Amino acid sequence: MEIKNLTTEQRNPATMHIDSMSTIEMVKTINQEDQKVAVAVGTQDDKIARAIDEAAKRYSKGGRLIYIGAGTSGRLGVLDAAELVPTYGIKPERAIGLIAGGKGAMYVAVEGAEDSQDLAKRDLKDLKLNKNDIVLGLAASGRTPYVIGGLDYAKATGALTISIACVKDSKIGHHADIAIEAVVGPEAITGSTRMKAGTAQKMILNMISTGVMIKQGKIYENVMIDVKPTNSKLIDRACRIIHTTTGASTQKAKDTLKEANNDVGLAIVMLKTNCSLNQAKSLLETKNGNVAEVLNK
Results as ranks from 00 to 15, higher is better:
K4H: 05
P229R: 06
N130P: 02
I219E: 12
A156F: 02
A292T: 07
G211T: 06
M270E: 14
I242A: 09
H175M: 07
I241D: 05
P145E: 02
C275R: 10
E111T: 09
N261C: 15
V212C: 03
T273W: 03
L283R: 12
Q251V: 11
G137H: 05
N206R: 11
I30E: 05
T23D: 08
K233M: 11
L76S: 01
R58W: 03
A159V: 15
N262V: 00
L124M: 04
A14K: 04
Y67W: 07
I235K: 04
S232A: 07
M26K: 06
Q10P: 04
M16G: 08
N278Q: 11
D177K: 06
N12S: 02
I268H: 14
M195R: 00
G247N: 15
Y153W: 02
G185V: 01
H174W: 14
S20T: 15
A140E: 10
K103C: 08
T190N: 04
A248C: 07
A56S: 10
Y88G: 14
S163R: 03
N5L: 08
D133C: 07
K4I: 11
Q279D: 02
G104T: 06
G71D: 15
T210F: 06
I180Y: 09
L127F: 09
D19H: 07
G71C: 01
I189T: 13
K281P: 15
M270F: 06
I24F: 08
I172T: 04
T157M: 02
T157Y: 14
D34V: 08
K297A: 02
I66G: 12
D152S: 05
N222Y: 06
K254Y: 14
H243R: 03
A197D: 04
M1D: 00
I164E: 03
C275F: 15
N274Y: 12
V39C: 00
K281C: 12
T29M: 12
K252M: 00
E181T: 07
K91V: 05
V264F: 14
G101K: 07
K297C: 15
S163G: 13
K272P: 10
N206V: 09
N296M: 09
V110T: 02
I3F: 08
R11G: 15
H243E: 12
N132I: 01
G71I: 00
L84D: 14
G97S: 07
G211D: 13
G149P: 10
L136P: 07
S141A: 05
T161M: 03
R122H: 02
S209D: 13
D34L: 04
G71H: 03
M270H: 11
R75M: 11
M207P: 00
G198Q: 08
M207Q: 10
R143K: 05
G142H: 10
L124E: 01
L295G: 07
K36Y: 03
K57I: 13
A51P: 12
P86F: 13
H17G: 04
T43H: 10
A100N: 07
T273G: 08
I268L: 10
T72Q: 04
I268T: 05
K297W: 14
N206I: 04
N206T: 14
